[in-house]
Design a protein around this nucleic acid. Structure first.
Lengths: 339, 339
DNA sequence: CTGAAAGCGCTAACAG
DNA sequence: CTGTTAGCGCTTTCAG
């Protein structure tokens, strides 16, 4: 049987209430007694009992706020799946979730959501929105009030959030490069497509992709921006395909592949060009099935959702700090046969 | 606030004890009352409170037995890591684990372990040992006594285990084939190495590998068995490399790659031959780093450990049957850049 | 500043 | 066959 609060109380010659106060950092205990209790807890290697704690919290469940893009953004469905999985495991363990859907491109919506959640009594927040000064300030304010924030999928850098759960963008770019080198034995020309080089994620991927290819015989002929708009992407890629008729491969640093696929098909290059992609949106899945896309690099969104909620729970409930500021989810590779 | 056992008792006009009996399938309740309670619970959508249940079980924690190969088999370290991760989350939730290490090639050790565990009062068992009649019988006997068994990593087929958690072997073979087709544009000759075609796992991988390559221009020149012994593998592969000087690639359906790597190096083929491998034993990691191995196909052992314990817990504690008899872990692909 | 006691929802042992 | 009751370990009033 493991050690309880009651044993500590006995050994310290105080009541359980006092021990509770000390162990949970509540004020109002004579420093001398506090020290004594801490020492005993330490010596006995006290570990609070999760079930008991959760049960007691059932009177006033801990509220966790979740700020993320609306349901229409299908990419987040997977993340939500992961959150639900964690929620399922934590059901009846003294928490309740409150979702706030925001337009994650509008900075102040995120900031406002945080404030609302705090006003509603949230004890912790999961946050995914644009990396903007307004959000940074809002997060830091939450932290100062003792409300931990975990960012997921897209980070708000240099904010005081407990940690970020998401993809290792550098690795993602390097893997793309690695895949290219496996497909081409000698010289080759590849094109890179991003949504916008202003996006931190895409910039990072491209940067590491390039760096990794310096020592190789693979030449990057161009980096084009499609702004994740079908028309722009289609038109620009068409031009590029004409401009570089001897192109060997394409790296799509963005997950939106619909227009690319169509352009490649139109040019009659389907199956000839080697294509590496990101994520698993429906178009990408289709592209893999048709043999148009060779590889896609995953950021494991389900894991992102699951881990972020678990981490926040452990933090609030067990006071367990995440072991690293950056919690990277697996960067795995898929091919058609993986589907 | 969610519905409790007490409300059900009130509505049914009985005591909480009776409700508990019914809800937990214990005998000794008049059928008529049982029906009534069940109906009410159903109507109210009763969900038992995990924390309360776990806390009550703290008096007499539920014992879960774990039968697996000894610590010397390093492959299982990863699986154990996953089990520990799950254990960590379930700490204080009313369970205690008991490990039994066995030689998983000796059938009766597994069977005996099951019996010992049951005698010691285990309420559920995680099992990983050779697929043998003795084990099948022993598992089925446990099930008949109401003690659920979950097999992991290597299945005992057609036993009454609740489910198997491990790799989708067919997919693993198909992915290997898919990778080959991505590396070779035209005709190519590849060699397959297994430990033993008597191993179900290796037979399956090879079978699906072959089937997937039928429509391709890739020819499988031979399948050699190395029995996971360094000497045998090294010698046989040496011969093959001489016999097929124009070989293009190798598929190692086994995870033991040390001898293969050495033979390839000796033949001066390092970097020329395209190699696809399984798992991430130290030799494989080294091979990837040196650029000798192109791809390795993972079965996510950590996930295997984690999921099997979680599933068993949910089964025992929440009565939640696994949604499928085969719980496949991700079959992901790694390259050097993934490390 | 500290102690006492009630209660979170469920289980199990003991009466009846 | 069914009701009663004493916990499981922790939090949180309410007194003092």
């Amino acid at each position: 049987m493991s050690v309880t609060i009651r044993e500590i109380a006995q050994q310290a010659g105080v009541s359980r209430g006092t021990v509770d106060r000390v162990l949970n950092g509540r004020s109002g205990v004579k420093p001398e007694i506090r020290e004594r209790i801490l020492a005993i807890a330490d010596r006995l290697q006290y570990v609070p009992n999760l079930a008991a704690k959760a049960l007691a919290y059932n009177r006033k469940p801990i509220q966790i706020g979740i700020v993320m893009p609306p349901k229409e953004i299908s990419f987040f469905d997977e993340i939500r799946k992961g959150i639900h999985a964690a929620e399922d495991e934590l059901k009846g363990l003294g928490i309740c979730l409150e979702y706030v859907y925001i337009n994650n491109q509008l900075a102040d919506e995120g900031a406002r959501a945080i404030q609302t959640l705090i006003a509603n009594g949230a004890s912790g927040i999961l946050f995914s929105a644009i990396d903007d000064e307004v959000n940074r300030v809002s997060i830091d304010k939450a932290i100062e009030q003792g409300i931990p924030v975990v960012t997921f999928n897209s980070d708000v850098e240099n904010s005081k959030r407990s940690c970020f759960v998401g993809q290792d963008l550098g690795k993602s770019g390097e893997i793309a490069a690695g895949l290219m080198t496996r497909m081409f034995t000698g010289k080759a020309k590849v094109l890179v497509i991003v949504a916008n080089m202003k996006f931190h994620a895409h910039r990072m991927r491209v940067q590491y992709f390039k760096e990794k290819l310096i020592q190789s015989e693979i030449e990057i002929v161009d980096v084009i921006e499609g702004y994740d708009r079908y028309d722009d992407t289609f038109r620009k890629l068409n031009e590029s395909l004409k401009m570089y008729p001897d192109l060997d491969g394409i790296y799509m640093a963005t997950g939106h592949a619909g227009a690319c696929i169509d352009a490649v098909k139109l040019a009659g290059k389907g199956g000839h060009l080697r294509i590496v992609c990101n994520d698993l949106m429906p178009e990408v899945e289709q592209g893999l099935r048709e043999g148009l896309i060779d590889f896609t690099i995953m950021q494991n969104p389900v894991q992102q959702g699951y881990r972020s909620l678990r981490i926040l729970y452990d933090l609030i409930f067990n006071g367990k700090q995440p072991d690293h500021e950056f919690q990277y989810t697996d960067t795995s590779i898929m091919i058609a046969e993986s589907l």
